[in-house]
Design a protein around this nucleic acid. Structure first.
Lengths: 333, 333
DNA sequence: TTGAAAGCGATACCAC
DNA sequence: GTGGTATCGCTTTCAA
């Protein structure tokens, strides 16, 4: 492997000059610069990033820590972040915390050890509570989950408004006993519950939240249980606070032989591609997932350039995509 | 930031000893070792990975290069690889090539610059043809896509057998004019086409492949076009070679008001979670996605430990998950 | 079993 | 503008 020394020797200059050609080309006279560039090309020289990192005390590297990259939401976010990383010559390190605060902590330490330039984090509930952003040697941007009041860049959905709109839509369609499937472990579940409860309260109706693991199977089991109640007791509509719960709810509803929207209304978060299939036609709250990731990446880049700027909080809106599954107990009007 | 020097000073030993405690604890007398460990704890010392990397000339870091992490197949693979990386103290760098050979090449170079310990790659067609694994300074493992003959570790699905079985199943159900939606850009599409053609040839039937971009929209458009043909010309069944094409095909079929399995039979690769919904009930080829990723990671670890071992080729089987969508033109028997 | 010292490959400071 | 040189923090001889 050719080093900067070899290049310097071949070009007949000092290593300093080679280094300058690499980092601040404008500071080197063009005749010299061309000689150096030729030597670089001839030797196929590539800078040793470890050496550079040791000297500069920072790496061209950003971390993305999420609970599970298999969730379509985080997959899109990850893709957006990786796009921006590639465009800016940064590497992306992917970390799955599995909602495990210890694993999350361990990854944050890893990022510190790697001298990462920045980290984008979707924190666990516990991690969020004890998070001290200023304690880390890199800028931090929160996505999807955040508490009010902390001074840290973040980009979140207006979860409460989105859930309220979805619930209002179900009410307008004529549903009255609307149950909520809400995931524990996350601030988003709580915020979505708040919006749901708010919409019901405005009509003097009682909320019927079911708190559960945000998984397909838990959603299916909980829904089956809800449907097993006496007909005048069981919910006439369901709102699922994420895509997996929505899938589980649909599974149970269809397995019970019920049909949307007549027998039961259905709506849920995450406008996953399959929800648009005519045979399902599910009303969803579309999150601007790619945008969320892109915005997080932009916030991070801006903070890397200007560490002292005040923390920014970006709130994006969900879009209610009305489809047939919530058209009302008397069918589409 | 405390360095190894500070630890050495505090413990009253040389930096060499501290280094040994960190890397080969057995080589240090326990009294000394404990003193060093205490100093480490008191100072909150953490080794500088850049310095270590510079000295050792290799990083605890593996790369994963796939076309797009948003494909559920690669999402699962990525999750499996990250799991093993975490367990073995390695970092995972995520790279999306977008089926762009130049981007793929650029990422491979980045991995070389980073002195990665290894790379798991799902190559583009073009990249695969010019790939010279021995030219890279790290071990390489191919996933999902590979050519015969190259000497390189790889883990692939038996695509031909899986497609053949799926096609045979459609034939047994009574379908005769079976069309194939196959993705260009990939060896898997070609292999799946081969299995499909083989099964049809055994019955003296003509293959009807449609080659297209492996996207949802392309699948929908192509299917709509197929369905627009005269009733006795148009296919009576469809086989889609990946989950996105399957989704697009379903969209077009349902939009045309056709019902499976009577009006048209449907089967496709990738047993995505939504395919099991009773309202869809789609026959699929389930790929052992997590296993594929895990196996690739294991191959990589083994080669890192034993660089000279002969290349291994691991072939995993797909499982045909028979559901209602392919039960035959006369309905379920 | 332990320590002294060289060196990994860059950058940054300070002369010139 | 350019070059000499110290230095980043660690591992690895080599000698004791």
């Amino acid at each position: 492997m050719a080093s900067i020394k070899d290049v310097a020797q071949r070009a007949g200059v000092s290593t300093t000059t080679v280094s300058r050609v690499l980092t601040t080309p404008g500071a080197v006279r063009s005749t010299l610069r061309e000689r150096v560039e030729q030597a670089i090309a001839e030797l196929g020289y590539r800078p040793n990033l470890a050496a550079r990192r040791l000297r500069q005390r920072r790496a061209s590297l950003v971390g993305l820590i999420v609970s599970d990259i298999r969730s379509p939401f985080f997959t899109d976010v990850g893709r957006a972040v990786e796009d921006m990383a590639y465009r800016n010559g940064l590497r992306l390190i992917l970390c799955n915390s599995d909602e495990n605060p210890a694993k999350e902590q361990s990854y944050l330490e890893l990022m510190a050890d790697e001298q990462a330039s920045g980290v984008i984090l979707s924190p666990t509930m516990e991690g969020l509570q004890r998070l001290r952003p200023e304690a880390w040697p890199f800028p931090l941007v929160l996505v999807d989950r955040a508490l009010e009041g902390t001074r840290v860049d973040r980009v979140v959905l207006d979860n409460q408004a989105a859930a309220r709109r979805a619930t209002e839509h179900l009410l307008q369609s004529g549903y009255r006993r609307i149950a909520l499937l809400a995931g524990t472990h996350s601030t988003t579940g709580q915020q979505r519950h708040a919006g749901y409860a708010q919409a019901l309260a405005a009509q003097g109706l009682a909320p019927r939240p079911v708190w559960l693991d945000p998984t397909r199977d838990a959603g299916e089991r909980a829904t089956a249980q809800l449907l097993a109640a006496a007909p005048d007791q069981r919910p006439d509509a369901l709102l699922a606070t994420n895509g997996l719960l929505l899938l589980g709810a649909l599974q149970a509803v269809q397995a019970a032989g019920l049909r949307t929207p007549r027998d039961i209304g259905i709506a849920g978060f995450d406008n996953n591609d399959w929800t648009a299939l005519p045979a399902l036609d599910v009303t969803t709250v579309a999150q601007p997932t790619y945008d969320i990731g892109r915005t997080a990446a932009e916030l991070l880049l801006q903070r890397m350039q200007e560490p002292a700027r005040p923390a920014r909080r970006v709130v994006l809106e969900g879009e209610l995509v009305v489809r047939g599954s919530s058209a009302g107990p008397r069918g589409p009007s």
